[in-house]
Design a protein around this nucleic acid. Sequence first.
DNA 1: GTAAGACCTAACATCAATGTCAGGTTCAAG
DNA 2: CTTGAACCTGACATTGATGTTAGGTCTTAC
Lengths: 121, 121
Amino acid sequence: MRIGELARRTGVSERSLRYYEQQGLLAADRTPGGQRDYPDAAVDRVIRIQELFAAGLHSRKIAELLPCMRDADGGPSEIADAKLVAELTAERDRIDRMIGDLITSRDVLDDVITAASEPGD
Amino acid sequence: MRIGELARRTGVSERSLRYYEQQGLLAADRTPGGQRDYPDAAVDRVIRIQELFAAGLHSRKIAELLPCMRDADGGPSEIADAKLVAELTAERDRIDRMIGDLITSRDVLDDVITAASEPGD
DNA sequence: GTAAGACCTAACATCAATGTCAGGTTCAAG
DNA sequence: CTTGAACCTGACATTGATGTTAGGTCTTAC
């Protein structure tokens, strides 16, 4: 598929998709005329990339991580070396703390929302 | 307490604490000489602010939200108006989705980490 | 009073992903 | 062939919290 369709199907801008390619996160074949041609699996990959960005990983780390991920198609995946494992473990722990903080914030919002919905107090 | 101690106790830089004040998130008395003097409750408030930033709220929205939060000291809290409730509900839902995405990303990392720890495959 | 450390304001820098624009090329349908 | 939509590259702009620096003032212990 071409970039416009991928953008539409993932909700990610064309600008960002080109950026992902530039960062080595997302490969694309080219038509004879030079336009990008993505495989269907690109949709899942882009969504995964977005999730990792949302989790606070930077593109360089995502680029290192992606080849080690087991894809839906179960393709051969590389094994992370010790250094990468250490970094990913740190990220995992950070994400864990982040989830805890988000739950706290969600509870705070719920509290304020609930207080506003209750009949006059 | 003065700004240095608050920074030390919260892990937030002095720069950020001044920024919070500028954004209307954090009030401080002033000594006769013009230096900031924070109440003990500022520690909790700063931590709360950091959590809300981590949850993706912008300072303007946090500024609207804070007066409606029930503090530990149970001070009188304002009631959010309908517009604010709508905004906060949207934020809450966004945070919900974010938590889901983070869990997905954490699982992905765990998977890669585990694969690397397992004896040769 | 004085010296050192903590604080003040103001301004500019940074980061990383994304937006936007300009000027040109490719594709597909008529 | 032509035309309009979709695509290309490259460059510059934006965002918002935070870092950094400079030059000056306050506080506190001696």
